[in-house]
Design a protein around this nucleic acid. Structure first.
Lengths: 193, 193
DNA sequence: AGTGTAGGCCAACATGTGTTGACATCCATC
DNA sequence: GATGGATGTCAACACATGTTGGCCTACACT
């Protein structure tokens, strides 16, 4: 069965995204990707030039952040937590960035651009001018990427076992404080469920 | 100049820790490590057997958690945040685990063991029995590892720019809530500094 | 039927890697 | 000073990888 050029290219890209997400840049081999796509390694070179360009095509990713200004101010933390959870599970792009960014400076820079360029402006629109938006964006990144790391990459059992709602319940207030709160907002440990 | 066996072994181990921390497992080559240590690659094999065993020796790491029961209950979050900050900066062991654990299942399992075995019991001693300690330990791990990832690996500029005290101020309340609080503890955004 | 072109495969090359075994060199001991 | 073990180097092997160029094959069109 013969495929069209576009079909083959798409098959290669799909296989590449899976392999890069599962194994990282170095461990994901052209041969393995080609095998998954059911074609010869030479085809990968034909369609994408080299491994770096294939990776660049596979690592395309956008946070697709919602407009936070349409959300009630006191629910913005939970909304963002839920959005990231959905985003992580629907698109393996973030897994690719996480697995490769830790050992590839170019990818790390891309992640810096994504979080500064997409999350920063969003937060600037809702936050308190007294605390700079980049710091708030950075803090949100630490909690959100840490959750992705522990849940999907390291697979810490209690973190994997949490439901989406559990995650939103726990991370929501944290993100809320990072977004619109103040460093010294003390948590109250009095109320118990 | 001739060195003793132990000196050479220590030099190799030091070079290996730096390389593994900077480049990860695959990108850190025996040849580069040997070159850093000023010896022939064959010596590495003689003293450590193979690359995996060298890595196992280099990736030795302990969280060295303090006894939280001696700390006032409402300061436990800040204390833990400060401890992790110190630990990250003094010992490159965590950088090694972070850079390699994302693409190496054996290392990921080791991190699971570390956080479940060291952090879990500690938290069980101070927490609320109503919420299981493993979940609390997992949540702490998400925030603490996320900070390490963003600050030392991805180097997000606003996160790098924060002082140790800034980090403790922001992460302290978060960890406090994860440790002894309740999921629905709402942050108060009223007070401003 | 003949033919050109796009899609696909095969074999090979250059390179870098972990790893090994043979050889060299220093130093303590007799 | 001779000897033997510890310390170290060298060259090479076996293997996997990214990459390349040549060749094959099906299909559309005349």
């Amino acid at each position: 069965m013969r495929r069209s050029s576009e079909d083959t290219k798409a098959a290669i890209l799909a296989a590449a995204r899976e392999r890069f997400a599962a194994d990282g840049f170095q461990a994901a081999t052209i041969r393995a990707i080609a095998s998954d796509a059911g074609i010869d390694p030479a085809m990968v070179m034909r369609y994408f030039g080299n491994k770096e360009k294939l990776f660049a095509a596979a690592a395309d990713f956008d946070l697709r952040l919602p407009d936070l200004t349409t959300i009630p101010r006191d629910e913005v933390g939970r909304a963002l937590a839920g959005h990231f959870m959905d985003r992580w599970e629907q698109d393996e792009g973030m897994m690719i960035l996480l697995r490769t960014g830790v050992t590839n400076e170019a990818v790390a820079e891309r992640m810096r651009d994504i979080f500064a360029g997409q999350l920063g402006p969003l937060i600037a629109g809702i936050g308190d001018a007294a605390r700079p938006a980049p710091v708030r964006a950075g803090l949100v990144a630490t909690q959100v990427l840490g959750m992705a790391l522990c849940r999907y990459v390291l697979r810490l059992p209690p973190v994997v076992a949490m439901s989406r709602e559990d995650v939103v319940d726990w991370l929501g207030p944290t993100l809320q404080r990072y977004l619109v709160g103040d460093a010294h907002t003390a948590p109250s440990a009095a109320s118990r469920g």
